[in-house]
């Protein structure tokens, strides 16, 4: 079976973001960008399915600016077979909304006909946690979100999901969309020879128009501001002093 893995190029998770003073957004010029950490986990899981003989082909897809091809090369170096880049924006500051991304992905799914779409549960930039669910809706497929364990057999996937009170197991009929949570696996590092090989793997370039999708945002961003800052705290020199502070503030 074929597995499709959507990956997103986002600000590196270690970077402390800076809000532009004019409120127009977050400054992404000259900032280190990487693959969204959840998407790395999705790529890893897809490759493991291939290594286990369950998947026959792993196709990575990314939607955004042209530089997202670096993110796709990373997926190829990890072990994906080929890649599709949908160039939907000229400007790195223009984030394509999950609804438009889901529509483009639905177009890719119709062409590629995968049995499984494996994606990250959320992107660490817009923190939406929506694209996988939206894609499943548009395709009329089952969804299994926040997955920490996945077993695929006999046209079904058994998925352990991370829910509020613990874990939940569900079974979904394939084809399905599975969004992965942090604890599904430990993504591998791409080795240098694999990075070199990845440069020769096929990457197709497309546009939203190829799928008949309008990427105009439904949500207009009026402004982006810094969150309220906390005032500087006090350091205690001993446990006794800390106890006095806590009691003094009426906290217990």
């Amino acid at each position: 079976m074929k597995v499709l893995v959507p990956v997103k190029r986002v600000i590196d998770y270690n970077v402390k973001v800076r809000v532009r003073a004019d409120g127009s957004g977050v400054d992404l010029a000259n900032v280190k960008m990487s693959m969204n950490p959840f998407d790395e986990i999705a790529v890893e899981e897809a490759i493991r399915l291939k290594e286990a003989g369950v998947a026959t082909e792993v196709v990575a897809v990314s939607i955004g600016v042209k530089q997202a091809q670096e993110t796709l090369r990373t997926a190829l170096a990890m072990g994906a077979d080929r890649a599709i880049l949908v160039v939907a924006s000229e400007d790195v500051h223009q984030d394509i909304e999950p609804l438009a991304v889901a529509k483009i992905l639905a177009g890719v799914v119709k062409e590629e006909e995968p049995s499984l779409v494996l994606c990250g549960k959320q992107a660490i930039d817009n923190d939406m946690n929506a694209t996988g669910q939206m894609l499943a809706a548009l395709l009329g497929w089952a969804q299994a979100t926040f997955a920490s364990e996945l077993k695929v057999e006999g046209g079904q996937a058994t998925v352990t999901r991370e829910v509020d009170g613990g874990l939940q197991s569900i079974q979904v009929r394939l084809p399905a969309v599975v969004t992965v949570d942090l604890r599904m696996n430990e993504p591998r590092y791409a080795s240098l020879p694999n990075i070199m090989k990845a440069k020769k793997k096929p990457m197709e370039e497309k546009s939203p128009a190829d799928y008949g999708v309008d990427t105009a945002p439904r949500l207009t961003v009026l402004r982006t501001t810094e969150p309220a800052t906390r005032k500087a705290g006090v350091m205690a020199r001993s446990v006794d002093e800390l106890v006095d502070m806590i009691k003094g503030a009426g906290l217990v």
Partner: peptide, 23 residues
Amino acid sequence: STADAKNILPRVAALLDVMVISD
């Protein structure tokens, strides 16, 4: 914004062809 709502509401939004506004 519980795990259940995060699972369900984006699906609802897409079925209605609208964006979801999370959190």
